[in-house]
Design a protein around this nucleic acid. Structure first.
Lengths: 153, 153
DNA sequence: TGTATTTTGACCATCTTTGACTAATGGTTA
DNA sequence: TAACCATTAGTCAAAGATGGTCAAAATACA
């Protein structure tokens, strides 16, 4: 194991074990490995990415933490992941989003009400901004939602 | 639960239990948690806010107290209407939205998952745009959602 | 040798904790 | 009753405790 980053990665994976998440303290970990705290971010950014099936949350200040969660390998998640990679892309029209949501509803992945909420939140009316960026924002937001759905279940 | 503030919050919530109010003595509580009395105010100011559905009264001097009461919503539509027309306004920070959603969840107006969806859809990350308009867009979108949450009769 | 990856550090953002100073209230005393 | 005192709570700003970002420097790799 030639570099520290790899050791840190292994350490985090080992700590997580079979659990589906782990909470770390950035500073403690950095101290443990005698490295700069920002190196922890480097490891997280390069190794614990969405592509590799991880999502992260964190809080600053006293009692702060970084929580790393594993995205479970279910059929639903595989499907959602496919959507993120292929169907959505960098831009997403309201119409296209509606089509996708209809399918998600009929597959019982989201409820009717949840669908309404998403449609409303990301409608053209809600996103009152120039057209050029509307579809970009919607794509980004919608993908974030799909991602959350993967962790939530 | 690494920080004292969170413990204090939990303690107050637990003490309140199913009652709709609780009275505390700032100094006693501070002593109990071995913290500065003003930290009690900090907890009250950051956690027991109106947005989250609490109001506070207090009196100084001998026999002084702090009373924390839950706001009960008898009429969901009226509450939502108040949010839309008065409370939310033209700009809404992610933080404040979260507090409002906390209350909506505890009032069973939205589910946990729905709350997560809304938070995600309208997070700073999803709304990747200049800060100045972020809060405006969020306010608009959030009010649109609240409107949809109103039950028709 | 040139490129990609890793390591470091300076500076930033956010949340918590502490303490000095202030304000209000009720009882006690002159 | 007025002045005073003890007992509370309130405010606010500084200090402390975390994590985030970014780019330069160092190192590894092809």
């Amino acid at each position: 194991m030639a570099n520290i980053s790899e050791s840190i990665e292994q350490f985090i994976i080992a700590t997580m074990g079979d659990n589906d998440y782990v909470e770390i303290s950035r500073n403690s970990l950095a101290e443990y490995f005698s490295c700069a705290p920002s190196q922890i971010n480097y490891v997280l950014d390069t190794r614990f990415t969405v592509d590799r099936g991880y999502v992260k949350e964190s809080r600053r200040g006293g009692g702060g933490f970084i929580k790393i969660s594993k995205i479970k390998n279910t059929d639903t998640n595989a499907y959602l992941n496919g959507l993120i990679l292929e169907s959505v892309g960098d831009e997403l029209s309201a119409k296209r989003m509606l089509q996708i949501l209809d399918k998600l509803v009929s597959d019982n992945i989201v409820t009717d009400k949840e669908s309404v909420i998403i449609v409303t939140a990301l409608s053209d009316d809600s996103l009152s901004m120039p057209f050029t960026i509307k579809d970009k924002i919607r794509a980004k937001a919608f993908k974030n939602i799909l991602l959350k759905l993967m962790v939530k279940e």
